[in-house]
Write a protein that binds this DNA or RNA. Structure first.
Lengths: 265, 265
DNA sequence: GCGCACACCG
DNA sequence: CGGTGTGCGC
């Protein structure tokens, strides 16, 4: 079973890139973030034509929005608001093969890493605290995936320069600390299970950096976490860097994990 | 000598269509209207690469704007404001072969054809009155071309339905009357010299009409007028209707006139 | 830099 | 419908 996550930065602008990605990488489950569209304007037919019979859309006008597309039956889904803010950032689905998938788009947090002066940063910290409390309710004997654009690059090797990003939102100690607390509740970082922690690894390169490839000032903001029951099934994990070089790309690239998991239980 | 006029509706959005047009129709002089760009952001290099060594840009931020591009030397140019309004609507150039070319973008005139209630319509009428007075200053022994988007369809055969457009701005009697007064000062309608007046002829089809080709609810808003010394040199005149069917087209198509005129005098 | 929103124009 | 501008978010 191949699971992919991609912050697509407008699913309508990039529907052809989505098609190309599906053609080339053939995921069974595709989770998108920042679809930037209302649910009823989502280009659903494209996904149906590409073999995704089961689709859950948690859209929103203009901003945020997440969607999960599956070739396997989805037997349950749930859309949640976080921090009492009506933004579409979390979509939970359960597959008929017994796996739960939580698709997240964590708030970016604005520019200044100061929760007093910057309300967006305060919201991000509160979101992470809520994720920690929520993780404690997760059944650790259940096969569960938490994935998406979590907007935090936790390791020194998850950013192009640890030193230069210590005061930059996404890599500040307070965020990284809260992020670790969430993860340590019950999650295993599937990407870093496969790719050693000492290897530089990014999933996002700013649009504002013109020479993204040569400069390589990236960050690993996209993650795929799993509970213990899935760890022994994890076969591979990759980040498709080359997609950042496609025509009119998203600033994020897809991340993929492969599992050896029975189709039905 | 081939002279073309085209309301391009943003020269930046449609620079590839401009290239394609030049490749296929090879004008010596190309006059554009509604370039919708400041002079210093105009994509000049494209024109230089395509063989237009002489270029005059009368740009404006966001709206209006006209430009004239020539393979023959431009020995004089002048940018004029009309009705004391600072909008870029008239660019005069003189070629080394002795021909004057006045590139015009006449105000569209808004929705309601009522100069009391609609200031834009009042401006359009005043613009036409000013054009009449100005035409009287034209030396009728001089080879001069007046062309552009004049935003009036004068003849019954210049609109898809004379009756249904009598109260629609561009074909109201008051506009048509003022328009005729301008023309009758000294101008000959080169297009109608070649294409009989009883033949329906359009240069514009609204974006709002989805089936533009089948419905064919067009209007002839673009014109090319000449003074007497050029009439005997006029060889041909065409309106390139097919260009309305190109990818992401302008709502106007180019008009072209061919002259048998010596390159230098 | 590059999406979105909205308002204005034709 | 499809350009422009502006402001906003990431």
């Amino acid at each position: 079973m191949r699971v992919a996550s991609w912050n697509i930065n407008s699913v309508r602008m990039r529907i052809d890139l989505v098609k190309k990605f599906i053609d080339q990488y053939n995921p069974d489950i595709l989770c998108l973030q920042e679809i930037k569209v209302e649910s009823n304007l989502f280009p659903l037919s494209t996904f149906k034509k590409m073999g995704f019979e089961y689709n859950e859309i948690f859209g929103q006008k203009g901003y945020h929005g997440v969607s999960t597309h599956s070739k396997f039956p989805i037997i349950y889904s749930n859309k949640n608001y976080w921090c009492n803010i009506e933004e579409s950032r979390h979509l939970h689905i359960q597959l008929s093969n017994g796996i739960d998938i939580h698709n997240f788009y964590v708030p970016a947090g604005g520019d200044k890493p100061d929760p007093q002066k910057n309300k967006k940063f305060a919201q991000k910290l509160e979101f992470l605290r809520e994720m920690e409390r929520w993780s404690k309710t997760i059944d650790i004997s259940q096969a569960t995936i938490l994935l998406g654009d979590l907007n935090v690059a936790p390791l020194q090797t998850d950013v192009w320069s640890h030193k230069q990003l210590l005061k930059v939102v996404s890599h500040t100690p307070i965020e990284v600390d809260l992020f670790s607390k969430v993860k340590n509740v019950c999650w295993v970082d599937a990407i870093r299970e496969i790719i050693p922690e000492d290897e530089k690894l990014f999933s996002w390169w700013s649009y504002r950096s013109p020479n993204w490839e040569a400069a390589n000032k990236g960050r690993r903001l996209d993650h795929l976490w799993i509970t213990q029951p899935l760890v022994k099934s994890l076969v591979d994990a990759i980040i498709i860097r080359s997609i950042r070089g496609w025509e009119r790309p998203s600033d994020h690239v897809p991340i993929i994990a492969d599992f050896n998991w029975p189709r039905s239980l």
